[in-house]
Design a protein around this nucleic acid. Sequence first.
DNA 1: TACTTTTGTATGTATATACATATAATTATA
DNA 2: TATAATTATATGTATATACATACAAAAGTA
Lengths: 149, 149
Amino acid sequence: MKLEDEIKQKQFANNYHRLALNIMFTSSWLETIHGRGLRKYGITTQQYNVLRILRGQSPNAATVGLIQERMLDKNSNASRLIDKLLLKKLVSRKICPEDRRQMDVKITKKGLDLLTELDQFQTEWTNSLKTISEAEAKLVSDLLDKLRG
Amino acid sequence: MKLEDEIKQKQFANNYHRLALNIMFTSSWLETIHGRGLRKYGITTQQYNVLRILRGQSPNAATVGLIQERMLDKNSNASRLIDKLLLKKLVSRKICPEDRRQMDVKITKKGLDLLTELDQFQTEWTNSLKTISEAEAKLVSDLLDKLRG
DNA sequence: TACTTTTGTATGTATATACATATAATTATA
DNA sequence: TATAATTATATGTATATACATACAAAAGTA
C-alpha cells in the first residue's frame, strides 16, 4: 500500500521528504512484525539483536562496547539489555581480567539453543519480504547506504 | 557508508535480510538526526508528527483516533503525546459535543507559530538527504511501498 | 611516582513503545 | 426500553530510547 494511503497524507514537500517518512514508517512496520514473532519466545527485537551479535563472537566473549557498536540502534543501551538477558540466563557476564573496566559477555548454551530455534522463524520472516525481487532488495539497500553518505 | 561497516557485520543471509536491517538502521539514523534538531525547540519527533497532523486539519479539530491512524508509528500512544503537547500549550483538547467519547484536539496559535519556525529546519534536514537524486528517492520510496505489500 | 585525561560501563531521569485492560458513551439488538 | 456489543479514549506496566552524569580503571604526562 502506498505511504499516502497508510498515513492518509495526500502530498509531501518533495521526494526526499516522502522517502524519509517512508523509511521510518516501513521500519516501524518491520519492527512490529518482527517483535510480535519474537514475543512468543520471550525476547524483544533489541534483545534478539544482542544475542545475534554474541553468537557471532561465540565462543569468545564480547565487551559491552563491542555490542553497542554493532547494534542497529546505536543509541540503545547495551548495559541494560544485557541485564535483561542475564535474568533469563541467555548470557553470562563477568569482569574482564585483562582490563577490569570491561565486561566479558558471552551467550550461554540456553541462548544458543534459543537462537537455533529462532533461525527457522527468521528465515520465514525474511521470506515474507519477497514482494520485491532480490535484485530490487539489493538496489534499495545500496541506495540507503548512499543516502546516509 | 555501507551497512556492513556501520554495524561491523561481514555478511547477511540474503539481500532481504540485509534490506530489513538496513531499513531499521537507516530509520534509527534519521530519527536521531531529526530528534537532535527538534530538541532545541523543546519537542520530540513524535510530538512533531502530531503537530503536523493537527496543522493539516486546522482550523478544524482532530480526534485522538484520527491522529493515531495518521501517525508514522501506529503503535504510538496519541493520548499521552497529546498530554505532553497540552502541558506546553501547543494544542487544546475538549470533549466533542456531538460524541462525548471523542476528544476535539486542535493546534493552538503557539503550536502553529512553532511549526512555522520549524519549516525552515525541516527544509534543511530534507535537503541534507540529497546524496541521492530525487529520481532515486522516488524509486526507493516506491519499492518500500511494494515491499510492504 | 603523582597527577591528569581518557576509556568502559553503569545509572538517573524523561520520553516513548507495546500490549492489556478499564471506563464511559454510543449503537445495535432482543 | 432494557441489555448487549461496539467504539473512543485513557491508564497500568514492562521495555526501550536519549541524553547527562557518575565512577572506577587504565593510559598518558610532568
